[in-house]
Amino acid sequence: MSQNDTIISVKNVAKFYDQVPVLERVNISVERGTFCTIVGASGCGKSTFLRMLLSQELPTRGEILLDGEKLPDEPTADRGIVFQKYSVFPHLTVKGNLLLSQEFEQAPMSGKLYGNAKTIALEKIDETLEKIGLSAARDKFPSQLSGGMQQRLAIAQALLKEPKILLLDEPFGALDPGIRLDMHELLLSLWEDLNMTIFMVTHDLNEAFKLGTRMLVFDKIRHDPHAPNAFGATITYDLNIASCSQSNAQDAEMYFAKSPNSTEET
């Protein structure tokens, strides 16, 4: 793939909280269409990294470029997000949640569509509702849905805005294993259909291997026993999963297990 297919490049990014480094020397570039999974132990900055991609937090040093331009200092519509919790609006029905991005775009003053404009907007979300299997639940409120349905709604809501990259912060962390498998299928089919670039933080190593085409492992490589907070974490492994076959994933896991500090607690 050519150089100009890079969508995200992270240049020497570091993040400090009160002078304590959390992340240091993070350098990567990610090509368009990559499904990038991010794993690492708790407190190793993987969520911090995702929040910096979102501009929810700003890097202390270094810069992040999206399509060659520096990220704005606040969350914007070019990056979609699905959180583990609070990812949909509880005061809107399924339909209302999905209509929201169109309403923001078309009604700057009222933020709400009426009449004919609403009918057209509703037609646009019909296909989405069908695809995520929520057609029958279109008039329900999120609290009347299961956790899996809520996350499906959250993903669909984010994708309707057609962001350049989709960020997922442990989106399936609170779901049952069976439901997770369904969610994996849905996510993979959406990713293939839309040719999206996805960054996904997960605790689950198997999930990271299964879904990702590229896996980033965050860990601390330098340790000073007298000053445990002296060094931050960085990307210790950057695996291209797409190039290895499924059976190679097994090898990768072995390789991964040899890392100096175990990156997975579970």
Binding site: I81, Y86, F104, G111, A154, Q157, K161
Partner: peptide, 18 residues
Amino acid sequence: MIIKAETLGASVWQMLLR
């Protein structure tokens, strides 16, 4: 939720209203 609204393209006024 506020961040989600921002990523859906909401202005401050729209976030207030909706």
